[in-house]
Design a protein around this nucleic acid. Structure first.
Lengths: 219, 219
DNA sequence: ATATTTTTTTAGGTTTGTCTAAATTTATTT
DNA sequence: AAATAAATTTAGACAAACCTAAAAAAATAT
């Protein structure tokens, strides 16, 4: 596998996240996600097309080729392994790992990633509960489910929060809801969708509005 | 401290390594070290001068300002901490760490480096025996000394070879002198400056010419 | 002290990745 | 089906970091 620029890697990674089975990714969609202008996307798509990393038809959007997908998965692998390292070993908070992993993911050394993987005991999920692809790009299905979908009396760990607004983060901090906190749902109230839970063994009430945004992993 | 490009960081770091108390660094010298052309050095020196990171007079060479030195030391800190991490935690060989650290050193996050430092128990020396600057740029004297300067009967480890010519590397391979090999000087012959040593417990004779180029770290 | 060589700088060009503004294509309304 | 709106592409420009070739300055040799 050749070496690609940090820019190319970011484009490939982001297309991977945006593309679905049936729909092509659109120029505007990708431009917004990358905080760049549509014209820049067109430029890069032409380039990635000549490298055979995307299928691109002018005005018709684009999607990754098999080769493009392979590269995207290797970037995602690097990103999530670094996130795991930062949280697990360096004790970063779960909300701080992403930004630094965005830089670390572009350090290209197969040996580095293989050894890091081994050092971390080949983790299958990153701190947000997203699965980490193996060397061949294979990964498990995400274990994440919304807290509202968690069956009663089934312990699970908080692994992701679907909204990074200041207010929500502050609220979570106040309630001591962190990545890794153990939750068990005790009762669900149909009336207002609120939940009675145990958070790290302490009882707590949550509104449905909040519980929808909290994602957990069953162990 | 602002953010600098990987290129700027490499220039500053390399100037730091090349500059001495009395002598300015020259354009050709730096160009050779960075595998770039003299014209590119002139361009960058103009730029670094406007940023007040180097003192530069056309045709008279250049040296770092106090601010430039501060930045250079922070890059060197990052580089050596990563080298230590790669060798100590990921079990890289000593001769493999440099290349990867060259990339990792440009990941800019103060928190990352502080936490890495802490995680590694604030090491004072990298695997080559070079001292690691602290947050304020302070560091100990290098542990490296030339093999000719190593006292008799003092075990030390080979940590650097001051000449990477084909012939020398071949010679070292033949004699099984590797980074990490343990050496003890048994006798020094004043007559021709040759040394009688033990290399990983096997006796060996070295000429002074060779011994001058081999650097070791006392443990 | 002049001529020659070496070093350094200047001038102008290239690539990568971005941008703005205008043109074009596609989608949506009426 | 025109007219309008939205999305996308093209054209041309710019900054960063490099390059080559020519010019200029400094160092060295005769």
């Amino acid at each position: 596998m050749l070496n690609y620029s940090a820019s190319e890697e970011n484009y490939l990674k982001t297309i991977f996240h945006l593309q679905t089975k049936d729909d092509n990714v659109t120029t505007n969609e990708l431009a917004e996600r990358l905080h760049t202008k549509p014209a820049s996307i067109t430029d890069m798509m032409k380039k990635l097309k000549t490298r055979k990393l995307v299928n691109y038809q002018p005005y018709r959007g684009f999607r990754l080729t098999a080769e493009g997908k392979k590269i995207a998965l290797s970037i995602i692998r690097r990103h999530r392994l670094w996130e795991y390292f930062l949280a697990e070993k360096l004790k970063f908070n779960w909300d701080e790992v992403h930004e630094v992993a965005e830089q670390l993911e572009h350090v290209s050394s197969k040996k580095l990633i293989d050894k890091l993987d081994e050092y971390l005991d080949r983790p299958k999920f990153d701190p947000h509960g997203d699965p980490i692809p193996d060397t061949n790009g294979k990964m498990e299905a995400s274990r994440q489910i919304s807290l509202v979908a968690l069956p009663i009396n089934t312990p699970a760990k908080v692994c992701y929060v679907a909204d990074q607004s200041e207010l929500l983060l502050e609220y979570l901090q106040e309630k001591k809801i962190n990545i890794g906190s153990v939750v068990v749902v005790r009762k669900k109230f149909v009336y207002d969708e609120s939940l009675e839970i145990k958070l790290d063994n302490k009882p707590l009430m949550l509104t449905g509005q909040l519980a929808k945004k909290i994602f957990v992993c069953r162990q």
